[in-house]
Design a protein around this nucleic acid. Structure first.
Lengths: 229, 229
DNA sequence: ATAGCTAGTGATCAAACGATAAACAACCAT
DNA sequence: ATGGTTGTTTATCGTTTGATCACTAGCTAT
């Protein structure tokens, strides 16, 4: 009774798409789907959302895992299509402006529910691509930033960043990153607008960097003075 | 042949435990298990790791979801058993020391692979308990810290923290938090030891707070001067 | 020792899963 | 229009999943 109430499923006339378009559509919608449901989401639910039947997925991807890998590739490569290391290194503009613009542009790409969720899900799976991404952020972004910081402070630029310098850069980078997580993953109310947040963070970072690493050429492993002053 | 090669499963003599002990053991091991496998992990695999059969789980928990809820409860409540807001407010010690000790103690609890993974997994599920946790961090930790910051700077303590102040506290709190994520989730090499990282972060925070909010009683929505200096 | 209570197990169900094969139907060349 | 190509569906397989049942065996009171 309930099952066969609609015996002739008013099947929407099946539309044929070129393999290339289908593939792209599948990857795009799969990204949305897995970002919401996690990679444990079923292929049938995914197909329903795509408006096609489940076996069709297997014409385009040998297995669910292969589809997921495509999703990774798209999500992880997207942010680095743009030449961000060049933007950061362009000394015709003030460093402060470059930093502000970089983080506004970077967060414009990654501060979406979709991107952040895929990123966190894949991070929990412990995939190599995740470690690769972190190393790219370190080498293309943070190291570059530190170089520019040193340049601003009149310090030698050639030598590799110290561990403390890099960790300081990570501190602020992560702080900015987590603003997006709070807003789009936890959906917690965020307190100031994004540009303001970035601006404040950069003020804090630049001041702190100069304060901690600017004066002495040797950075003490632990600052002897603990009081704020 | 392969299946029945061990027909008489050398069954380990079944040991009876008191319901209370079993329950606790189940929740504890389930926390480990789900932290590694995610909440999609199977009840059979979990039971195997517990050294019992799968149906036994259902003697202690009506459903898998109920077991998971117990895991949440344990993980989320654990950090706040300790009176941390009192520690932060104890003005017989220097604020810098209180902050350092608080973050060392706090991260000692949450910087474990187990805790962080459960936290991130549950966060992605968008549960209420996660939002509750964030609000507790804000009210019991960050607001307290800002109050003490103001006290140190000779500013009025009574009025509620401004949005910018809170966001600045979140920035550093998140930066510290993500040090643990990088180390225990992404298993990325971490550059300086934890105490050093906390110390540097706190130096940066205290200096930045005073710099941004200490001088003027009114905090401009966007600092007019963008250059560092 | 032994009867009774109940923690723990073996067998099994229905549903959902990823995946495959064969039948169908939309499009293009002719 | 018509036949071949191939994008898409229907039907189905084998496995795994969460969950339930009847039965077994360890412990305790007597």
């Amino acid at each position: 009774m309930t099952k066969k109430a609609t015996p002739k499923r008013s099947r929407a006339k099946q539309r044929r798409l070129s393999p290339d378009d289908r593939r792209k559509e599948f990857v795009a919608k799969a990204t949305e789907f897995f970002s919401e449901e996690g990679f444990g989401g079923g292929t049938r639910d995914l197909a329903r959302r795509l408006g096609v039947t489940q076996p069709l997925l297997y014409r385009y991807f040998p297995s669910k895992d292969d589809l997921i890998k495509e999703v990774y590739r798209k999500v992880y490569l997207e942010p680095f299509d743009i030449g961000w290391d060049r933007l950061l290194a362009d000394r015709s503009r003030s460093f402060r402006d470059r930093l502000q613009e970089f983080y506004e542009a970077y967060t414009k790409v990654i501060f979406t529910r979709k991107w952040l969720r895929i990123y966190l899900y894949s991070g929990l799976k412990g995939l190599d691509i995740n470690r690769w991404y972190l190393s790219v952020v370190r080498d293309k972004v943070l190291v570059r930033i530190i170089k520019e910081c040193r340049h601003e402070a009149g310090l030698p630029v050639q030598s590799k960043p110290t561990a403390s310098e890099l960790e300081m850069a990570w501190l602020f980078h992560s702080g900015i990153f987590y603003y997006g997580v709070r807003k789009y993953i936890y959906e917690a109310p965020v307190l100031v607008d994004k540009e303001q947040m970035i601006s404040n963070a950069l003020d804090a970072f630049l001041a702190s960097f100069e304060r901690l690493f600017g004066a002495a050429s040797v950075t003490p492993r632990r600052p002897p003075v603990k009081a704020v002053g």
